Amino acid sequence: MGTIKLQNIRTYSFHGCLAEEAKIGSDYRVDLEIKTDLRKSSITDDLKDTVDYVLLNQIVVEEMAIRSKLLEHVGHRIVTRIFGEIPAVSRIVVAVSKLNPPIGGDVEAVTIELEEYRS
Rank of each mutant, 00 (worst) to 15 (best):
M1D: 07
M1T: 05
M1W: 03
I4D: 04
L6K: 03
Q7V: 11
Q7H: 03
Q7Y: 10
N8V: 11
I9M: 09
I9Q: 12
R10Y: 04
T11R: 05
Y12L: 14
G16F: 12
G16C: 15
L18V: 13
A19E: 15
A22M: 10
A22S: 14
K23H: 07
K23A: 10
I24E: 04
I24W: 07
G25I: 06
R29M: 06
V30Y: 00
L32D: 02
L32G: 00
E33S: 10
I34F: 11
I34H: 00
K35A: 02
T36F: 05
L38Y: 02
L38D: 03
L38E: 00
K40N: 08
S42A: 06
S42V: 01
I43G: 03
T44P: 05
T44M: 06
L47W: 09
L47T: 07
K48C: 12
K48L: 08
D49Q: 13
T50P: 11
T50M: 08
D52T: 13
Y53D: 06
V54Q: 08
L56R: 01
I59N: 03
V60W: 03
V60G: 02
V61S: 03
V61D: 04
E62I: 00
E63T: 02
M64H: 01
A65C: 03
I66S: 02
S68Y: 09
L70V: 09
L71I: 06
E72W: 12
E72N: 03
H73N: 09
V74Y: 01
V74K: 01
V74N: 00
V74I: 05
G75R: 01
I78E: 02
V79G: 02
V79N: 09
V79K: 05
R81Y: 01
I82D: 00
I82P: 06
F83R: 14
G84N: 15
E85F: 14
I86P: 01
I86L: 14
P87Y: 12
A88V: 12
A88P: 04
A88F: 13
V89Q: 09
V89E: 06
V96L: 14
K98L: 09
P101D: 04
P102W: 15
I103H: 07
I103D: 12
G105H: 14
E108F: 07
A109N: 06
V110W: 14
T111P: 08
T111I: 06
E113N: 11
E113L: 12
E113S: 13
L114W: 10
R118G: 12
R118H: 10
R118I: 11
S119D: 13
